[in-house]
Computed example of a mutant assay.
Amino acid sequence: MELEVRHLRVLCVIADTGSLHRAARELGMAQPSLSTQLRRIENALGAQLFVRSRTGCRPTPLGLVVLSRARPLVTEFAAMVTETRAAAARVACGFRLRIGATANRAIPGWLHRLRTGVARIEPTLQMNVSANSLLAMVAAGRLDMAFVHEVEGSPLRMPPGLRVRVLVEREPQFVTLAANHPAASRDRVRMADLAGDRWMVDATVDGEWDALFRALRSAGLRSEMLHGDYLTAYSLAAIGEVVTVSQPTAHPRPDLAIRPLEGDPISVRLLLAARTEAELDEVYPHLEESYWAVAREAPAYVEWLKNARTPATLPPDGRHQPNGLTNTPPRTRA
């Protein structure tokens, strides 16, 4: 009998479940068939790998050694299958790129640049309020990449093996309030200026409820926090019913004021995740261009960027970069 990757997976599942019965159920096999297969594997290796008992099945010392070598092979093979299937799906669909994203004003321009650029990439888009869900879909091969935000203080659950490129290391989140709100006359709004206001936040977005809660408590405020999507929040803010958190690139409206918060107590990190560096290289420049295009259209953000510039953030070529924002050269991490 020659050992194959499927045999190594059998060993891993038995070890993980601790029972031939549970392992057989997870593998979709009858328990007698699994017992026979395990004996064949052990015969092929010439050693007992598991100790069977009425309470379960545990690895022998030699079994632990075999498992330590088997697990990386099983993981790598699964990743290869996932990436190959994803690549095949793209070819079958005419080089469609399956993108997942949380809300961001850079997305329309990014998709347009991909579609009309030299590579003529045809993107599809799946929006989701949960960055963690999108990252899991990329890892599973159901999406090719995800453009998401990570709320400061609420780290994302990054699946192993994904490559990440950071677009903005720390993007401040602004406050949106009625244009006639007393605090709208300020260039920067203090949390204390909003002591009498109710806040609305979308609690389904990973980390955002917690971030606002921390900011309010840090300012010594116990403001009422309402649940709601941001479209509703902006409508209510326009008539003075609530104030809400917004991205700094939010488009100006005559009935709303978008202002930085003093001290930037709420911030996010913007990142693009994919399974390979090649995928990131292909699309990241278009995303970067789109983001800074919409940033230039947001007066409050432009002003914040001007005030945030410091000599320490000047690149060697002399071009200004905002303090705390890193977009050249792109950063990657596993």
Rank of each mutant, 00 (worst) to 15 (best):
D229R: 10
R198F: 08
A237E: 07
R217H: 04
R190I: 14
S218L: 15
D206G: 06
E208A: 07
T232S: 07
V189E: 01
L216Q: 03
A183V: 13
L212E: 05
A195L: 11
A203I: 14
D206W: 13
R198W: 09
G228W: 15
V189A: 00
D202P: 03
H227G: 01
D202L: 10
L221C: 02
A219S: 07
A237K: 07
A192D: 08
E224C: 04
G196T: 13
W209E: 10
R186K: 08
T232L: 13
I239N: 00
G228F: 14
D193V: 15
S223D: 09
G220D: 06
G228Y: 13
A219W: 15
G228N: 07
G196V: 15
D187G: 09
R188M: 10
A203V: 15
A184R: 03
T244R: 03
G220W: 13
M191I: 14
V201N: 00
Y234K: 05
D210G: 04
A233N: 03
L236C: 04
G240D: 08
S218D: 13
I239Y: 03
A233T: 10
V243D: 01
L221Q: 02
A195S: 11
M225Q: 10
E241N: 04
G220F: 12
L231N: 01
V201W: 06
A192G: 02
A233F: 13
R222K: 12
V242G: 01
T232G: 05
T232W: 12
E241C: 07
F213V: 14
R198N: 02
D210Y: 08
T204Q: 01
A211S: 05
V242T: 03
G228A: 08
Y230V: 11
A211H: 05
E224P: 01
S235Q: 15
D206I: 14
S185D: 11
A211K: 06
L212W: 11
A203F: 11
Y234M: 12
A219E: 09
G196I: 14
D193R: 05
H227M: 10
E208S: 07
L194S: 03
V189K: 00
L231H: 03
S218C: 12
A215Y: 05
D210M: 08
G220L: 11
D210A: 10
W199S: 02
A237G: 05
M191C: 08
A195W: 14
G207Y: 15
A233R: 05
A215T: 06
A211G: 02
S185A: 15
A233I: 15
L226D: 02
D187F: 13
L231C: 01
P182C: 06
T244K: 02
S223N: 15
S223F: 13
L212C: 06
A237D: 06
M191Y: 11
M225A: 07
L194W: 12
S218T: 15
D197C: 07
L236Q: 08
L194C: 06
Y234C: 06
G207R: 12
